[in-house]
């Protein structure tokens, strides 16, 4: 039984180390520390024509600083819109009610997130409010076709007589 104390100490150390490792992984490696805002955070919703590739837990930022996360994404079958619910850190309670919500992409082909741009109103968003001004996700194909269309238009204005060019450009776009 003399060895028993040594054994108990080692086992205690082992279990302790294991728990520390788990803790390390939870805190340093994962996003656990960031998730704890759920209970005190306040909800705001926004409607988009196209929610793009937004996912639950996607970040919500303002001025590039993450102030919250997407908590739910639903589809409104009457208005055919995407209804995105967000939870914002209670420390950031000065969002004007005319804030715009944009669906932006991180990097060129990265994941999508919601970027909030402040309006000028003196009234602030509270729990349960909805953001009126929204900008839907950018769909790559639409952007390209719009770009080409604009190019074609400006090309047509400069050289009025070049109707063939415009026609042929338009034809190419279709």
């Amino acid at each position: 039984m003399r060895e028993s104390r040594a054994i108990e100490i080692w086992v205690g150390l082992f279990v302790g180390m294991g728990i520390i490792a788990l803790f390390f992984l939870a805190m340093q490696v994962s996003n656990l520390s960031d998730l704890n805002m759920d209970d005190k955070s306040y909800r705001i919703t926004a409607r988009f024509e196209n929610a793009g590739s937004l996912k639950v837990k996607s970040p919500v930022t303002m001025a590039g600083v993450r102030i919250g996360r997407v908590s739910a994404i639903e589809f409104d079958k009457d208005t055919y819109e995407a209804v995105v619910e967000m939870r914002v850190d209670p420390a950031y309670d000065t969002l004007p009610i005319d804030t715009t919500a944009n669906v932006l992409t991180a990097g060129l082909l990265g994941e999508q997130y919601i970027g909030l741009s402040p309006g000028g109103s003196e009234e602030y968003l509270k729990d349960g409010d909805e953001i009126e001004l929204t900008q839907s996700a950018m769909v790559l194909e639409e952007v390209i076709s719009r770009f080409l269309f604009n190019k074609a238009e400006s090309g047509g204005e400069k050289s009025q007589g070049d109707a063939e060019g415009v026609d042929s450009d338009e034809a190419r776009i279709q």
Binding site: L22, L25, Q28, V29, S30, N31, L32, D34, K57
Partner: peptide, 19 residues
């Protein structure tokens, strides 16, 4: 190194599943 890791590794999805 650490911030990207923190942003992408989810406690429930990754760590708990690993456990």
């Amino acid at each position: 190194f650490w911030s990207q890791m923190r942003a992408k590794i989810d406690f429930e999805e990754d760590i708990l599943n690993g456990v």
